[in-house]
Design a protein around this nucleic acid. Structure first.
Lengths: 335, 335
DNA sequence: GGCGAGAATTAAATCGTTTCAATTTCGGTT
DNA sequence: AACCGAAATTGAAACGATTTAATTCTCGCC
């Protein structure tokens, strides 16, 4: 059974296909009476427009694609929700993809979005996809970088100041008297990791006796946190850190689990701070200190910038930067 | 600047458009030499196929749509990842949508998927979308229900036995001597909520003096958990429950926060159990007992059933049911 | 060297919608 | 009652790929 299409609707309503199309897309061009007749025919036949044909003819797709690093991370889930809500209000469908911090999957997703001829792409890139994104932009697809400042001024970006965030975290630990800070997260090519680490080092450089070392984990989930922590605990006592700065809260939660399991007291023996301030950080066994980023707002802002770039490709690029904030809890302060 | 298309590639490679298409879609029909020439022309021109045109001509879309109740809930994020991985292996793009437990958004998403002519839909329906889904199936789009048993045998479904899960939770509480169980979650039209509640009541009906009451929250997030708990705490002491069964872990986490804030001891004063066993349940202030469901496996299984249904629409429907398991932690057992 | 089978290539039709330009209808005026 | 401009409607072309059926090559063999 073939699906109903415009010609069927037109026949049923006793008008031409062109009029059906107008009734749907330019209602002001059609008399009220005809509009109603078409509406009824559509209803009776259960007509659903074929978006492929529409796109082909219109030479454009309203939809926007988004690629996040890890949809299982509540931080990115929130960013995605922020974007989704904003785009929804603007009647733009969102195609949500997930790179799992995997460059190959990222490319697959990008290719898919290109084939779909999406109007724009929101992306938190894995490593160095910038060149590829440049090509995409040249193809007329708007691009906005999410949660990372785009160095070049080719695309707009929305970010928080990760260097500052790293500094805030380390300063907090240093002020509490900690001197050996282990930064855990990775891989290093992820810009967020590099920036947060850099911020932490900057903070420590002010003090003679403070050290900051990066332990590169392959991923950024709680498993990575557990693994890295095991490594740290295996160190000789004098090399063991007195503070851990996890580059996101999932990693911090994993670290906390492993520390607890090993009977290490947090924060007495080792202080712990995470990043993102996902809602679960506050309700952890030991509530985890963190650096807060306004997740939903980041997504919403990125969506708005993207839509603006779609509407006017020549509009000047912008790089709004949100300011992260320290949220101190028991994992650093103690009870 | 127009994008390159098959004719351009054909011209560059010195062949006809038909050959370019064959090189792409039926490589075995094209000589190795020609294939290579086409490949090169594609590369030089940066040709990216227009999926709308392809779909229109082929009369089919490989992509699959998925609608989850709440992408911010790690349980559904995991289900989605399970589905995504499986579909990825089968070369099928996944369009991920989020209903936020909102029937209207669900309809919007479904409409979108219909217009896209997706090959199939994976959905955890809000309330009573079954009739609508029937229409969709009649249109030739395969449907598989996720995380809820479809009563009718119109579509396949993948679920866990939520009635059993509810029973396990309540039995556990009853065995620990609790007698006044408050079930919090909602809205009630969500099948999971109704089933888990029913299971709990069944368990209690075996005991003379046990009561189970449902407190319907509008949503299923931690805010709902906090609000419901506030209501419970405002009850006169003799009506106050000695155990709370939250219909998912987000709600349980919210409840725990509110209990802690009010100085109520968990589990001494009030025992608490959640549902889903998301990873954050184990690392909560007081580790939360929960009912585990194999999230990723559910998603993967649903994806496989869907692909099978797409391949053979007349294939018999199946209703695999996973068995939930109690995971007892401190929030019921104590230290 | 010619023949024929199978491989390789291609011309032209087609998918379902929207749009452009052209035509028809309508309401109001003189 | 004829006419005019604006509003409403329509026929036919167009979007960019794939497919079918027909045509052209290739190569081994007699």
């Amino acid at each position: 059974m073939a699906l109903a299409q415009v010609t069927d609707v037109a026949a049923r309503a006793g008008v031409s296909p062109a009029t059906v199309s107008n009734a749907l897309n330019h209602p002001d061009k059609v008399s009220a009476k005809t509009r109603e007749r078409v509406r009824q025919a559509i209803e009776e036949l259960g007509y659903v427009r074929n978006d492929a044909a529409r796109q082909l003819r219109q030479q454009q797709n309203l939809a926007v694609g988004m690629i996040v690093l890890d949809i299982g991370n509540p931080f990115f889930a929130d960013v995605a929700r922020g974007a989704e809500n904003t785009l929804g209000e603007l009647q733009r469908p969102l195609l949500l993809g997930n790179s799992s911090q995997n460059a190959e999957r990222e490319l697959t997703q990008l290719r898919l979005f290109e084939e779909q001829r999406v109007a724009g792409i929101l992306i938190t890139p894995v490593g160095d996809a910038l060149q590829r994104l440049g090509q995409i932009k040249d193809r007329g697809i708007a691009v906005v970088i999410v949660d990372r400042e785009a160095g070049a001024d080719e695309f707009s970006s929305v970010s928080t100041d990760d260097v500052l965030g790293g500094r805030l975290a380390a300063q907090h630990l240093l002020e509490l008297g900690r001197r050996r800070i282990a930064v855990i997260g990775g891989p290093r090519i992820i810009r967020q990791v590099a920036d947060r680490y850099e911020g932490a080092r900057t903070a420590a450089s002010a003090l003679e006796d403070a050290t900051v070392q990066l332990w590169d984990t392959g991923a950024m989930d709680s498993q990575a946190g557990r693994d890295a922590t095991k490594t740290l605990l295996a160190l000789p006592a004098e090399e063991r850190p007195d503070a851990i700065f996890a580059t996101n809260d999932l990693v911090a939660l994993g670290a906390l689990q492993e520390l607890t399991r090993a009977g290490i007291h947090v924060p007495e023996d080792v202080a712990l701070i995470g990043y993102d301030d996902i809602q679960f950080a506050a309700s952890a066994t030991v509530p985890i200190s963190s650096i807060r980023q306004p997740a939903q707002e980041i997504g919403a802002r990125a969506a708005r910038l993207l839509v603006a770039a779609i509407a006017d490709p020549s509009a000047s690029v912008q790089h709004p930067v949100f300011t992260p904030a320290l949220v101190a809890r028991e994992s650093t302060l103690g009870p």
